[in-house]
């Protein structure tokens, strides 16, 4: 945790905008605490769910006396329970995220903060973690609007210096967290070992998984000239290129293919995929982009 107060990730105006939103889960999960979301458990909300026969020991306050008067049998009225939602934001904090203007990691941090704040406002259980955390050291849990400052300083403390593969990071995350809920994985998916194994871990957890692939403008439209020696920032691997129009065209094709493969992989497995450019403005990101992606409403 950094001691100095970091610059706020979210501006007050943005916070006001985010307050009106809520996270959308495509699945209904059991929560741990009372919250604002419908739970599969029956509970004490005002919304009627079902009847069941009375068994001794049941709270007699929920006996439906009108039914008893008609049928002379005791039935218990069941109500829908409203519980909290588990929201996980899993950030890729590898050095490769530290590129672009603003950097991909900045973008990821803002996105995580925005979503986390929406969750906080709706009393959801928000947990923001990175791929580099070990399996035994889970990140802090934030709940309630008051946790905003804490969440922000936690986010500010994360630096894109973790050198871990996507698959290993996701496996560790799965080991750390047994609960279900919404998982937003924010990464560039640029892993030489492939992203498929990593995503399979998440799919196996039956979580509501969102993958946000963040790419910088430099990656999408590289402006390179001349003879270059491209050095990979993570493994110091290098590739020598002489830029030429066919090579750049070839790169564009490769990139488009890569993105399409990722989208198809996700869509086939019920994972929501979205692509974002790191230079997207925060306001646009939230109001337009996230809403369009169906993650918030």
């Amino acid at each position: 945790m950094p001691v100095e107060s970091p610059p706020p990730i979210l501006s007050p105006a943005l916070l006001a905008q985010l307050e009106r939103l809520e996270l959308v889960s495509r699945k209904i999960y059991r929560g741990q605490m009372k919250g604002e979301r419908r739970s599969p458990r029956k509970g004490q909300s005002v919304e009627f769910a079902d009847f069941r026969s009375y068994v001794p020991g049941d709270d007699i306050r929920f006996i439906d006396w009108n039914t008893y008067a008609r049928l002379e049998k005791l039935f218990l009225k069941l109500f829908l329970e409203e519980e909290d939602l588990h929201f996980y934001a899993l950030l890729d904090a590898s050095p490769s995220m530290d590129f672009g203007s603003p950097t991909k990691f900045e973008f990821a941090r803002q996105l995580a903060a925005s979503l986390g704040f929406i969750g906080l406002v709706r009393s959801d259980r928000v947990r923001i973690e990175t791929l580099g955390q070990s399996a035994r050291a889970p990140g802090p849990v934030f709940r309630g609007r008051r946790s905003l400052t804490r969440m922000q300083s936690h986010l500010s403390g994360i630096e894109p210096v973790e050198k871990v593969s996507l698959a290993a990071g996701v496996r560790n995350f799965s080991l750390r967290n047994s609960g279900r809920g919404i998982l937003v994985l924010i990464t560039d998916l640029m892993d030489k070992e492939g992203y498929e194994a990593a995503l399979r871990y998440l799919i196996a957890r039956q979580m509501d998984v969102y993958v946000v692939q963040v790419l910088s403008a430099e990656e999408m439209e590289p402006e390179l000239r001349g003879d270059m020696r491209l050095v990979d920032c993570e493994d110091d691997d290098f590739t020598e290129i002489t830029t030429s129009a066919p090579l750049l065209a070839r790169y564009q094709r490769t990139l488009a293919e890569f993105i399409n493969q990722a989208r198809e992989f996700c869509n086939r497995r019920g994972v929501a995929y979205s692509l974002a450019r790191s230079d997207l403005a925060v306001e646009q990101l939230v109001a337009g982009y996230l809403r369009k992606q169906g993650l918030v409403r």
């Binding site: 990979d232 920032c233 070839r250 790169y251 490769t254």
Partner: peptide, 22 residues
């Protein structure tokens, strides 16, 4: 004397694939 200008990139993954194709 071919001196290629070194450039740090997020990943050489896509470049490598492109060049392999070429």
């Amino acid at each position: 004397k071919l001196r290629r200008q070194p450039l740090l990139v997020p990943s050489t993954y896509l470049w490598r694939k492109s060049i392999e194709d070429l």
